[in-house]
Design a protein around this nucleic acid. Structure first.
Length: 755
RNA sequence: GCCGCUGUAGCUCAGCCCGGUAGAGCAGCGCUUUUGUAAAGCGCGGGUCGCAGGUUCAACUCCUGUCAGCGGCUCCA
């Protein structure tokens, strides 16, 4: 006798078990027709799921009442499309392609598969695969779910109706592994009912299967057929799926990539086939158009086209050379951020790009993170002596990484733990001195803080630096401006008392808010990284952590944007807040972080004198809310598609004389603009005005001032604004100069100067 | 770091499969044109085909290695 509670709170009672489809029908035939699945107590299920007890339920359809695509609906469609694609691929490439894992993603789905030796799948096959997918969708075959028990017999030969037996017969080790994991997970969840199952299986052509694993009594495996079981293609799958292939709408395969089984590079290499699906062809087309749009915004392409930056092989991978135009963007942004920091009471510092190894041994960066740092720089003299003494490379690395007795003792005492392991301690005459390119600015800032005594009255001390750091990112990770090996952080360290943490975090967030607002990045969210309650890797007291986490959460909440709690994502030394922005076409970018650190004070023996006249440890807040200038500029290039607001544009105005005859007047206009600091140029080329306009438009110059004899006579300029494909008319030169200076001054996001 | 693909003029790309030492458009330079809002016309210059080996009478082309870029995987204090 199930009673079903619908999302609007209304209840429906039935006198016998009903399927999701029955419930939809009872609400209305239109809904039943549109239904793709159901959500039962928040869990997505097949529409055919039979309900025999009281639940809350919602019907999942393609889109909501506002005609917006529904997330759950898309999930069902794409998960189902992954099955259709897998069938199509096996039809096109061969039945011996072994499927591993095929989930939906944010933008589509993929299916990892093993393509046997000698066979190949390439983009040349896409057309055939797409065609086959379209056929399967058109056939509108029902997705049929069925379950098979496992462990019904010792010998798999004995019972046909055994899920594991079926998989063993298919000889697909990936699916067998998937099933084993699913079964083991059941045992984990319900240890009381856990049961051990052993199979022995004699294949007609020799022995094959043998399995011994844990699961629960009565465990079942779920399969889905693209049609009728035994007749059509089927797959081990947890589901859920749409009712039939026809409900997928439109699906295509989009790209190929390689992946590893379980993401482990020592494991089998698989081919990951990406695809996407939408309820209608029009939506799929729209998506493809958007993707094309996104690739047009690629900051690497725009950066080259607009000559913003250059990466040179001879300088090195991941090292950015900022050209004059790009430097303008970066500098304007930096000046803006610096001004906001000043308003918040930050003080600016400068520190060198390298520091002694001992500094990083103290901070803990070396050798702990040595794999992501540039190699240490060892002094020439020391190197020569080592080499002369026949020191091996391995021995040298040990001696470079070693720590003196004195340093180890201090750190271990202050951190009240064996932070420096005894095997790293080495006699002073064995240690090899050296330097390191700094991977972080904090050790230098800690030394500045420690260089003078501090009273609680001076706290917090806010040290800011646009500090350049170097990290050895893996070569495969490097990408344009967004992943580089040398970058400048908008870094600052806030040395504060424990009570000051909430206000300081609040300050960081309000800064971010201001800057995102000015840049028109209205859509962003924060992730609050909290400690994993089950882990012991964290330093600092539980009470401190509770307070700091509460401060982070309160600050995030006050920001007025979406935020999520991410347990286990905290750094070992304190909780953190990450910023994720969405650009104008909806892509998300991770920028910077704010992190609370209880450890650094101990490491560097920092202190301030409290009202009790005793020394106290300061807490340090690391904050680089925009990540790095490189990454942030990269994101902005894509956000604006190279069409920067006037205040950020490398070239704000271009003066275009109709012909040489008005060149002189053009020069006058140019000086008038430059006199008030506007970045303007004059196009002196011997081209027709059409060509000059085209070139300036391609270069995304915000304002074009066309000047001919008519304008010269009236001391006017004819204005053309980026994005408007026509002449807006003439206005007095003085008025234009005044207006654009105002637009730049206010950092307006829109181009508002017009006659 | 791993796997796959790519590397030809400043830029975008053709030529490579099937070896006979390179081609287009744009950009640049010169001349003509003096132009009113998204590319005027003509002419000229420019490349040891990423780099290093190998095969061959002969290599941009085939093979090996290497470097770099792209797509993904893994990673990101």
């Amino acid at each position: 006798m199930p009673t079903i509670t619908l999302p609007d709170g209304s209840k429906k009672s039935f006198d016998k078990p009903v399927s999701g489809k029955d419930v939809a029908l009872s609400i209305g035939p239109g809904l039943a027709k549109a239904a793709l699945g159901v959500k039962i107590n928040g869990e997505l299920k097949d529409l055919s799921t039979v309900i025999d007890h009281d639940v809350s339920l919602s019907i999942v359809t393609e889109r909501d009442r506002q005609k917006v695509l529904d997330k759950d609906g898309l999930f069902l469609i794409r998960h189902s499309a992954a099955h259709v694609m897998a069938e199509a691929i096996q039809d096109v490439i061969g039945k011996d392609v072994q499927l591993a894992y095929g989930p939906p993603t944010d933008t589509g789905f993929f299916y990892d598969m093993y393509v046997p030796e000698g066979k190949k799948i390439s983009s040349d096959h896409f057309e055939a695969i797409n065609k086959r997918m379209a056929e399967i969708i058109k056939e509108n075959r029902e997705f049929t779910r069925y379950e098979l028990p496992v462990g019904v017999a010792e010998s798999m030969q004995a019972h046909k109706e055994d899920g594991m037996r079926k998989l063993f017969l298919e000889k697909n080790k990936y699916k067998i592994d998937n099933a084993m994991r699913a079964l083991a997970a059941m045992a984990e969840k319900n240890p009381a009912a856990a049961d051990r199952i052993a199979y022995k299986y004699q294949d007609p052509d020799g022995s094959y299967g043998e399995a011994d694993y844990k699961t629960v009594q009565g465990a079942k495996l779920t399969f889905y057929a693209n049609g009728a079981p035994g007749k059509n293609w089927e797959d081990l799958c947890r589901g859920p799926h749409v009712p039939s292939t026809g409900r997928i709408g439109a699906a295509i395969v989009t790209s190929l990539a390689s992946s590893y089984w379980h993401g482990d590079e020592n494991s089998d290499r698989l081919i990951r086939v990406y695809g996407t699906a939408f309820p209608t062809q029009a939506e799929l087309d729209e998506y493809l158009k958007q993707k094309e749009e996104a690739s047009k915004r690629d900051h690497r392409v725009i950066g080259k086209h607009l000559r913003l930056f250059h990466i040179d092989e001879d300088v090195g991978q991941g090292l950015i050379l900022w050209t004059p135009r790009g430097s303008v963007v970066r500098k304007e942004l930096q000046t803006f951020i610096a001004a906001e920091l000043k308003k918040q009471g930050y003080t600016e510092v400068f520190t060198p790009h390298i520091g002694r190894l001992e500094l990083y041994k103290t901070s803990g960066h070396f050798p702990y993170y040595k794999d992501s740092q540039f190699a240490p720089i060892v002094e020439r003299q020391a190197l020569a002596e080592l080499s002369a003494s026949g020191c091996t490379c391995a021995e040298m690395m040990n001696r470079v990484e070693g720590v003196s007795e004195r340093l180890a003792k201090g750190i271990n005492e202050r951190t009240k733990a064996q932070t420096i392991a005894p095997d790293r301690i080495m006699a002073d005459d064995k240690l090899v001195e050296g330097f390191m390119l700094k991977p972080m600015n904090c050790p230098h800032h800690a030394k500045i803080f420690g260089s003078s005594p501090h009273s609680y009255r001076d706290m917090p001390v806010r040290l800011a630096e646009f500090g350049t750091v170097y990290r050895w990112e893996q070569s495969g990770e490097l990408n344009g401006l967004t992943r580089v090996r040398g970058f400048t952080q908008d870094d600052a360290h806030l040395f504060c008392t424990e009570e000051q943490i909430p206000a300081e975090i609040q300050g960081c967030l309000s800064l971010v808010k201001t800057i995102f607002n000015v840049l028109g990045m209205k859509d962003y969210r924060v992730r609050v990284g909290l400690r994993d309650p089950d882990s012991s890797k964290y330093t600092g007291s539980a009470e401190s952590w509770d307070k700091a986490e509460a401060a982070c959460l309160a600050a995030a909440e006050s920001l007025g944007v979406a935020f999520s709690k991410e347990p286990g994502e905290a750094a070992f030394y304190g909780p953190k807040i990450d910023f994720v922005v969405k650009d104008v076409i909806g892509r998300e970018w991770q920028l910077g972080t704010v992190q609370v650190d209880y450890q650094m004070g101990n490491r560097f023996d920092l202190s301030y004198i409290g009202p009790d006249n005793k020394a106290h440890r300061p807490v340090v807040i690391h904050r680089a809310p925009f990540g790095s200038m490189e990454r942030f500029c990269g994101v902005l290039i894509e956000h604006f598609a190279g069409a920067f607001p006037t205040w950020l544009s490398p070239e704000q105005v271009r003066v275009l004389p109709i012909s040489d005859k008005t060149l002189d007047y053009g020069r006058k206009v140019l000086s008038a603009l430059q006199a008030v600091g506007v970045r303007a140029t004059l196009d002196e080329s011997n081209e027709r005005i059409q060509a000059k306009v085209k070139v300036a438009a391609d270069e995304k110059i915000p304002y074009m001032l066309i000047v001919g004899p008519r304008d010269a006579e009236n001391n006017a300029v004819s204005v053309r604004v980026r994005g408007v494909e026509k002449d807006l008319g003439a206005m007095p030169l003085d008025a234009f100069v005044k207006a654009i200076a105002g637009e730049i001054e206010t950092k307006s996001a829109v181009l508002s100067v017009k006659p």
